[in-house]
Computed example of a mutant assay.
Amino acid sequence: MMHDTGIRLSPISLLTQGGRWRAGAMRSYSSDQLLWFTRGQGRLTVGGTARGFGAHNAVFIPAGTMYAFELGAQVFGTALFLGRLSGPPFPERPVHLRIRDAQTQAELTGILDQLQREADGDRPGRERSIQAYAGLLSVWLERVMQQQEDDLAANSASRRLARRFSELVEKDFHTGRGVSYYAERLGVTSTHLTRVCKQTCGSTASEFLAERKFSEARRLLADTRKPVKQIAAELGFASPAYFTRAFQGRCGQSPRSFRTGH
């Protein structure tokens, strides 16, 4: 339920509804978010780096950061979208925390439960209470981050390059530019960029770029009424015919067939 702060909580399973393609699609949101996995396991690609997750993993994802799921069976948890909260400082980089201490797990679950109660309610002082619990969440993240090494924000050159590449792709994937453009912007060769991407997320730079582009193509086809030729132009394809051939080759069906089926 949305209120003035724009805060929202939902089961993680709701983020992956709509078919297998949507579950694994690259995505980004305009709001900071926290994913709290309480059961199951899978794989999460955030900011160009892939790693596995399991029960009692907390992942903080800043607004505008690309990520994708690969969920195993019986994955449960909560997704918190922080909306337009002001005041509490939250991390500017993705953070993946494995919470092994039962008390620390209970602290996070308690904060999320209270945020859910306030967001769904209409009691006096609701907005101040939400801000207060958000402040507690900020402190919780700060304390846990001091105790654990955050692999996604590690200082390795490969992870820094992968993160910067991911940020550039999110900004420019619709322009039609190829890997050589991104490599030049990052001051490396295309070969080195591809090697780093294979190391950090298991796919080449061109595959990473294509996945973001075609994830957006599938979203636009499924969720909007925009003509195919307009979608092709918005995603930087030279012509609707080229877009159709590329989509067919990657997705196994034409854009129109995909739209009809979704």
Score class of each variant (00 low, 15 high):
172 D>H: 09
85 L>S: 02
7 I>G: 00
47 G>Q: 05
218 R>G: 07
70 E>T: 10
99 I>G: 03
79 A>Q: 05
54 G>W: 12
155 N>F: 01
12 I>D: 03
17 Q>H: 12
228 V>W: 08
224 T>R: 14
213 K>T: 15
46 V>N: 00
1 M>D: 02
127 E>P: 10
101 D>V: 12
91 P>D: 11
89 P>V: 14
89 P>S: 14
204 T>F: 07
11 P>R: 07
90 F>T: 04
221 L>Q: 03
66 M>N: 14
145 M>N: 04
194 T>A: 14
184 E>N: 11
175 T>R: 14
121 G>W: 03
91 P>I: 03
87 G>R: 07
232 A>M: 11
41 Q>S: 15
250 R>S: 09
6 G>W: 00
245 R>D: 13
242 Y>G: 11
114 Q>A: 13
257 S>W: 02
199 Q>H: 11
109 T>W: 07
124 P>S: 08
236 G>E: 02
244 T>N: 07
237 F>H: 00
76 F>P: 05
161 L>G: 02
156 S>P: 00
188 V>K: 06
193 L>P: 00
52 G>R: 09
125 G>I: 10
239 S>D: 06
211 E>A: 13
176 G>E: 08
123 R>A: 11
90 F>S: 06
247 F>T: 06
253 Q>V: 09
162 A>R: 03
6 G>V: 01
193 L>S: 05
60 F>W: 09
25 A>E: 06
57 N>D: 13
166 S>V: 05
150 D>L: 02
37 F>S: 00
140 W>G: 01
118 E>D: 09
70 E>V: 06
73 A>T: 11
241 A>N: 08
14 L>N: 08
101 D>A: 13
74 Q>I: 04
104 T>P: 00
137 L>R: 01
254 S>H: 00
129 S>Y: 08
226 K>I: 10
8 R>G: 02
100 R>N: 10
79 A>Y: 02
191 T>E: 14
132 A>N: 10
57 N>L: 08
210 A>L: 13
236 G>Q: 03
121 G>P: 08
238 A>P: 02
36 W>K: 03
222 A>R: 15
17 Q>R: 11
136 L>R: 12
171 K>V: 14
228 V>K: 15
100 R>H: 10
83 G>C: 10
97 L>S: 02
205 A>G: 09
160 R>E: 13
70 E>G: 09
69 F>K: 00
36 W>V: 06
63 A>F: 12
94 P>V: 02
39 R>A: 15
4 D>E: 12
33 Q>S: 13
89 P>T: 12
74 Q>S: 14
238 A>I: 05
65 T>G: 03
48 G>H: 03
102 A>Y: 00
45 T>G: 04
200 T>Y: 00
95 V>N: 02
216 E>Q: 14
217 A>R: 04
254 S>A: 10
154 A>T: 13
71 L>A: 11
162 A>K: 01
124 P>Y: 11
71 L>I: 06
213 K>C: 05
107 E>Y: 12
45 T>Q: 01
241 A>H: 07
148 Q>H: 08
254 S>D: 04
253 Q>C: 15
49 T>K: 09
148 Q>V: 04
152 L>H: 01
201 C>I: 06
138 S>R: 03
132 A>S: 13
259 R>G: 12
254 S>N: 04
244 T>C: 05
15 L>W: 04
11 P>N: 07
81 F>T: 02
24 G>S: 12
259 R>K: 15
39 R>V: 12
53 F>P: 10
104 T>Y: 06
228 V>G: 08
166 S>R: 01
129 S>F: 08
214 F>W: 01
3 H>F: 05
166 S>Y: 01
